[in-house]
Amino acid sequence: MLFAALFYVAGITLAGGLVYRISDYLRTPAPLKIPTTPAPTTSGGVVLRMTREVLLFESLFKGSLWTWAFAVLFHGGLALVLMRHLRYFTQPVWSWVDLAQPFGIYAGFVMAIGLVGLWGRRFLVDRIRYISTPSDHLMLALLLMIALSGLSMKFLDHTDIIGVKAFFLGLEHFDPQPLPASPLLYLHLSLVATLMIIFPFSKLLHAPGVFFSPSRNQPDNPREHRHLSSWAAKLESES
């Protein structure tokens, strides 16, 4: 019951926090055209640029090959792992989730390798060590512990996944079911709930943030189309 409450709180915090953040970003105007050029001149081009940025980490690739490699391992691994986990939330399980299943299991290791690599840089590279705050380390520790506790349940100490699925389906139908008793599972789920709660208050906001970055999401067409924010338009009527 404690876990049921925890997950309701975490889910609401995550969803509510993100909705608040995103609507805040949406409400805040970008008064000037500041795409980092050369930039696409059309909105279609911007969609492509953003897609490359989000799926391939194009800029990071230009910036640092090591960081890019570890970032791809981590995020790619995480994406597959999340897809695989959908099986605990859907009944019947969607067919593409079944397809992701075999990859998803090993993606857990890939994700962990990526995290270790990213964390290693925070100790080994003097510049990155200099800029790292305690929360940067804790965030990586949290993610790594989530990955390791998850992998342990798969490969070391099996959990009653049928019970787990019943628990989450119960949450979805507002009919809480008991969670199978397993220390590893408790650990795993507590950490995940923690991550969900801190997401909207932390640097994890880079995930929605990238879509609102004016240097990436604006088309380069200032001569052709006038761009005027609401507060700048007020100056107009004053003169």
Binding site: T28, D136, K203, V210, F212, S213
Partner: peptide, 24 residues
């Protein structure tokens, strides 16, 4: 300024300290 410039708000929130810029 945080209310007037989306750039400032998003940029202050989004950085993950990855260090890609650190030598640029």
């Amino acid at each position: 300024l945080l209310k007037k410039y989306r750039s400032l708000k998003v940029y202050l929130d989004a950085c993950v300290h990855c260090g890609a810029c650190s030598d640029k």
